[in-house]
Design a binder for these strands. Structure first.
Lengths: 256, 256
DNA sequence: GTAGGCGTCCCGCTGACCGGTACGGTGATC
DNA sequence: GATCACCGTACCGGTCAGCGGGACGCCTAC
């Protein structure tokens, strides 16, 4: 987890610490729970949380605090993710319509994948991914594509840190993972077979930056083993990702 | 605009002021531009922006600052919007697949609609809405539905404040708007005919809270006048919204 | 009754924050 | 190539916003 724990000697540091104490599946957190998670003194937590409410980053409910709509709005304005999302939507729609399986758009952040979008129908496979949520790179198709098309240093960093086991099929051997990344570079797609959740398979392709060797994002299709064959989707996933790549290239977006 | 301008005497206030200086279509803002928009002293802006970068709410690029991916992630964790989005997605997909026109999910915030989701294909009508963006309630179908199913006080507030003209068809007469809201209550759907943008028509239905008289959100379909007839979609939009309503009711979500 | 957990508030100390000021770089204008 | 305007960055002493230990009142459980 390459998360420096934020400077607790500044108001701002305390504030983001409180905000980040919320995980994807927390609806509402009590003051006491926030104190427990952040390690901040109770009085301080109370005051800062109050200030956050004043500034419309938190909502106060009778059960406790929750992240507010104002924060959602702000987050949606993050230019990279938002414009990616807007440009990608038509391509994601196409994939969904052809397969009626769950379609993801994700970017890499450190050793994790962050899902920017997730679309699916009523019968979608129950997957552990959430929009705005994280998953380790090494156990997802999106993650493996993103890693394969990353700087070698990043790859080494991941390969040399322990690979968490999520299911019996999760790849925890660095050597095996490295070989797979090589294959991904050749094929332009990555697969995942019940490595993050039992019963799920997945295929992903990279959205490449202008140079063509670095990935900005990745697109994937996920389905249950019972009815979904990832190999059958190689062409359309690759096409969608490439279409998005060239669309993105036509706009200015990136930067250091 | 019921936006209290945030307390500029606190660090937190300054920080959110800087963050909110970004609009939906700003990719990157220079320090000087931030100074101009926020009215804060240059030195202060420089320092606080630097702190925001440290805390991963802003990114530093060679061109200036931009809202970071960390902020996107945080915003996606806002429970109300996120769970709404997740539950709604299958219904929105259905609507898109049936019509191949742009589908929106929106909530009300003050006198504005905030778009939580927007999905469309390659040939989507060019509409002024953006995911995470705002539009006035009185000139959109989503807005009119949300307003019709709101507390009377809110309605009065909107009706008694000036109604901004966006196109020649925008309804700027409070009396007319009020009558339309009555019709919306009866029909359970609202229409918009080139009131927010020339060439666009729209139909929306409310996602109702358990009581059945207050709207949590609304779903809409938007299309160009040339090929899209909103009246033909009454049934499916209403069905989608009702389906989502009952799904939401089955979960705990709301609160004061 | 009492014990533990909760949210709220008080209040005196102090160091984080403030912002006027100054400096170096860069590009346009004459 | 000199001048000027505008930019981002850095400094630094004064002071007040922020701090958090502690106390209080309210619950529910035992």
């Amino acid at each position: 987890m390459p998360h420096e724990p934020a400077d607790l000697d500044t108001v701002l540091g305390k504030a983001v610490t409180i905000l980040r104490a919320f995980t994807v599946d927390d609806q509402v957190l009590s003051l006491a729970e926030l104190v427990r998670r952040t390690g901040l003194p109770k009085a301080t937590t109370h005051r800062v949380a109050g200030d956050l409410v004043t500034n419309r980053l938190l909502d106060r409910t009778n059960l406790g605090y929750r992240l507010s709509g104002g924060l959602f709005e702000l987050g949606m304005r993050a230019s990279v993710e938002r414009s990616l999302l807007e440009l990608a939507m038509p391509f994601l729609q196409d994939l969904y319509e052809r397969t009626h399986e769950t379609v993801h758009l994700g970017v890499r952040e450190g050793h994790d994948v962050v899902y920017v979008a997730k679309i699916g129908g009523h019968r979608q496979a129950k997957s552990p991914s959430r929009p705005g949520g994280r998953m380790p790179v090494h156990c997802t198709a999106i993650g493996k594509v993103l890693l394969a098309f990353s700087d070698p240093e990043v790859q080494q960093e991941v390969l040399s840190s322990p690979l968490e086991r999520r299911t019996p099929h999760t790849i925890v051997a660095p050597g095996l993972l490295e070989r797979q990344l090589g294959a991904v570079l050749e094929n332009g797609v990555a697969f995942e077979r019940e490595e993050s959740a039992i019963g799920l398979q997945c295929i992903a392709a990279p959205v490449l930056a202008e140079g063509g060797d670095k990935a900005l994002a990745a697109i994937s299709i996920t389905g249950p083993v019972s009815r979904f064959r990832p190999e059958a989707q190689v062409t359309i996933v690759r096409a969608a990702a490439q279409g998005l790549s060239s669309l993105v290239s036509r706009r200015r977006s990136l930067s250091s």
